[in-house]
């Protein structure tokens, strides 16, 4: 059996009843391995969890952090919920758009960076909050955007 299969069994052992509770950690692991949840990734996960691929799809479609289509190697998530919005999040996301030459929701042509608007990231007192590969940057302003993009590995 594959290493992925073994890793999923180790996760399952931490939960009661069997266990389907490993679904989210297993899908996350598959996504880390494949970059996104391709058909192959879903099928491997279903196999390891002893559930149907359809079950894995139904779960994966529910959660924003699980990707059923390819995303860039790096992700930039800009919070545009109310507290950040009141403090200028729109100017920040526009600065990222012009720095990267893409719209929110798109990936750079070289497949490196996906830019997204996201809902509240839980850092509202330090607006605008931007997560680069899930690491938070606080108090981001339009002027600090080029520095953030430049700091990304292989950034444009």
């Amino acid at each position: 059996m594959s290493r992925f299969h073994d890793e999923v069994q180790a996760i399952r052992a931490r939960y009661p009843e069997g266990s389907r509770s490993a679904a989210l950690p297993a899908l996350r692991l598959a996504q880390e391995k494949h970059g996104w949840l391709s058909r192959q990734a879903i099928e491997e996960t279903a196999e390891a969890l002893d559930v149907t691929p359809a079950f894995c799809y139904s779960v994966a479609t529910f959660y924003d952090m699980l990707h059923l289509e390819p995303v860039g190697k790096h992700t930039i998530d800009v919070c545009t919920n109310l507290p950040c919005a009141l403090c200028g999040a729109q100017r920040v996301i526009e600065a990222f758009e012009s720095e990267l030459g893409i719209h929110a929701g798109e990936t750079t042509e070289d497949g490196e960076i996906t830019l997204r608007a996201v809902e509240c990231l839980g850092g509202c007192g330090y607006a605008t909050v931007v997560a680069v590969d899930d690491r938070y940057h606080h108090s981001v302003r339009a002027e600090t955007v080029p520095e953030i993009v430049g700091g990304i590995d292989g950034g444009t």
Binding site: E69, T80, Q90, G105, G111, A117
Partner: peptide
């Protein structure tokens, strides 16, 4: 802008 305004674009 809100996340619900955007649709993912596939490379």
């Amino acid at each position: 802008f809100a996340p619900s305004d955007q649709h993912a674009h596939t490379p």
